[in-house]
Design a protein around this nucleic acid. Structure first.
Lengths: 172, 172
DNA sequence: CCGAATTGTTTTAAGCCTAAAATGTTTCCC
DNA sequence: GGGAAACATTTTAGGCTTAAAACAATTCGG
């Protein structure tokens, strides 16, 4: 059983939560650090893709999605997977079809739907880029031990779940 | 002293590094998860800022930098801190001066330099937004324990250092 | 002191990105 | 069957973003 002073503390801290602004400086710092890491790595990858293959990161990301779906994907699927807007995908696909990396056709069973997939050229170029890309990522994370990687994976999974829950609460 | 079999293993793994492609699937998955978390949270914050205050995330970020520097900052400083290109800052500042949130003047001692700072209006609006913003972040990370937060901070610091080192190697 | 780097900012050209409205298609259900 | 709702995509308008080139001002080395 908790001491009286503990109970007072607990009550106190719960009261505070309603009456006075809580201190969330730690979470804020965590968010900024997370953002910094991502921006840093993303910028590095973007630059290398540009220099080595003259390709943009969004194009690479889109091709990566399609590489995992040999039978093709709809634009909506791509949009959800990449977590970008529908209109964004439209333009991206347009340019990749233009450059011969993507094939696009209207679904036979539903004329609303556009199915896109990698062309032979698109797949070949993507595989070539992906192989090198993987070594860049390995190098960027090189100072993390296997244990660090596992632990980060676990904590980020928890973070993702927490954020999704919070986003859900807002939309509800 | 390591056993003979260990030596063989070590040699083997070092040889592999050169001769055959290493497996970096774990690092790749980690990078994708990191990116997912950031995109998720960033999108959520962007949406809330727009709905509640009709402001964009980049504008908010720029004001956040200036709020920490009452004496003002140069465009280069802002650009480095925000990790975006110089030209990007120019446009952003233009719009924020236009809307009365920023004050901009040429340095007395160096006519190349533009010093910007928040106006009274800009500071007041930022403080109002920042207070609410902090509660959003707290909510998005709500399911993480204080220990999780500390551990994530530590691992992300390590990640940042590793990525910076790797980026430095490339530029060298 | 003067030309050559260096530094700070802006401009340019192209592409990325979003939210919201518009368009076309399918499904649901009465 | 015939609307209403839901869905997939495109369009629109505006803003963000980058890399590279251009411009302007300062500093540095001889």
């Amino acid at each position: 059983m908790p001491a009286v002073s503990d109970c007072i503390e607990m009550l106190d801290s719960e009261t505070k939560a309603v009456e006075t602004p809580e201190d969330h400086a730690e979470e804020l710092r965590l968010w900024l650090r997370l953002l910094t890491c991502t921006t840093l790595i993303e910028g590095e990858v973007r630059g290398r893709l540009r220099q080595r293959f003259d390709v943009t990161l969004p194009r690479f990301d889109l091709m990566a999605q399609l590489d995992k779906a040999p039978e093709g994907m709809t634009l909506s699927d791509v949009s959800k997977r990449m977590m970008v807007s529908n209109g964004n995908v439209t333009g991206l696909v347009e340019r990749l079809v233009e450059s011969g990396h993507l094939d696009r056709r209207t679904s036979d069973t539903d004329r609303r739907v556009q199915v896109i997939r990698l062309t032979k050229l698109g797949r070949a170029e993507f595989r070539r880029m992906a192989a090198e890309h993987e070594t860049w990522i390995a190098d960027l994370f090189a100072d993390l031990s296997p244990k660090d990687v596992r632990e980060l994976m676990r904590l980020l999974a928890k973070t993702k779940a927490s954020a999704q829950k919070s986003a859900g609460r807002r939309r509800a």
